[in-house]
Write a protein that binds this DNA or RNA. Structure first.
Lengths: 206, 206
DNA sequence: GTCTATAGAATGATAGAC
DNA sequence: GTCTATCATTCTATAGAC
């Protein structure tokens, strides 16, 4: 749109600063918890006064919003990576991979998990744009799960509960370990072996 | 120890006030979230100035601590109630009852669930006395679970993850409904039917 | 775009009169 | 045991100079 090279350069510089602020915000919440994000300290961290941050984000919640969107983009990208053609033949493996991938995503960054999958920030609501990114991520995950043979709502609900439960216990009670993570395969196999998971097995065989 | 009837009466009065403050605190966090407990508002609620609360609790965290202990006492009492002799004969039912009872305890009061089973209050650590109550509650629950046939650590870990996962999804995504709660039976049966749950079945039959 | 200055409001907690 | 007065912070956010 803009034929002005200076405009492009300025815009690029601005994008860099925006990204730098968000990166510093991730650092901060990793250290002080999700609620421990303070404009003053965030300003210190990127080398400006807290008030100057308002040139980039209209409010603190806009920063959470940017983190929220970035988090779901990362989630989509992370789950994309399980689309490995080598495992398409085996009916059990894709589900296991999917499950491990999900639990890993959660345990790698507990604060991100909290921001994306739990609701613990008092006044924060994601913007429509960010929420759209989240919805798309969920839809992708649902489709991939369907490819693994888990289709009906009750089964996918149980799947979700099991995996978030495992991730949550892992994060809360054995951070850095694998006491719950190593139960992922067993949980997945349990669900795949359940007759209720495949209510139409007979017709599927035809 | 004190033979002074006035002392007893004063002590009783004090206990009443302590209980009243904690009850008001539960009300407050139910309305404004776990972090939304403010000494000023709490004072208003019990009809005294915020500063006067410090005659009863040395700090805000001491109030959280009292709630924590009360919560685990409630948990023990709640799980005791499943000790129904009528169901001891059926090997499947005690586990189902136990599971339902647990999930109900969580969903009935989400804020209490958050205080007891998640770690979301920044500076709060339970006191040794409160923690002892929590440990005893866990030990009781573990024994009851063992009576239901779930004994090895991996299985009880999976049990915990499944049920907290179901409770969490229920609270977060369908408050007041039963979309996840109605999956409890299926989850329990899945675990009971799993061969890995009874690694020593042969010798048990002897 | 960044700064200083500052508003405006909330917080948890203490000291000391009564 | 409750009060008034107050401290000492923290916080988000705005106004306006440069």
């Amino acid at each position: 749109m803009s034929g002005n090279p200076n405009g492009d350069r300025r815009s690029a510089r601005r994008q860099e600063t925006l990204a730098e602020i968000v990166a510093a915000a991730w650092e901060m919440v990793a250290e002080h918890g999700l609620a421990g994000l303070s404009m003053r300290d965030l300003g210190d961290r990127v080398g400006m006064r807290a008030q100057s941050l308002y040139s980039y984000f209209a409010s603190k919640n806009k920063i959470y919003d940017a983190m929220f969107m970035e988090g779901y983009q990362a989630f989509s990208a992370w789950m994309e990576a399980t689309d490995d053609p080598r495992f398409r033949a085996d009916p059990a493996r894709p589900a296991r991979l999917l499950a491990h991938r999900f639990v890993e995503f959660c345990t790698i960054d507990p604060v991100r998990y909290q921001l994306l999958f739990q609701r613990t920030i008092p006044g924060f609501e994601p913007s429509p744009e960010s929420y759209a990114v989240a919805l798309k991520a969920y839809e992708n995950a649902r489709e991939r799960l369907a490819d693994s043979g888990l289709r009906d709502q009750e089964t996918t609900d149980l799947w979700t509960a099991m995996l978030t439960g495992l991730a949550d216990q892992q994060i809360s009670n054995d951070p850095g370990g694998d006491r719950w993570e190593r139960l992922v395969d067993r949980a997945v196999d349990l669900l795949l072996a359940d007759p209720q998971t495949h209510p139409h097995t007979e017709s599927d065989k035809a």
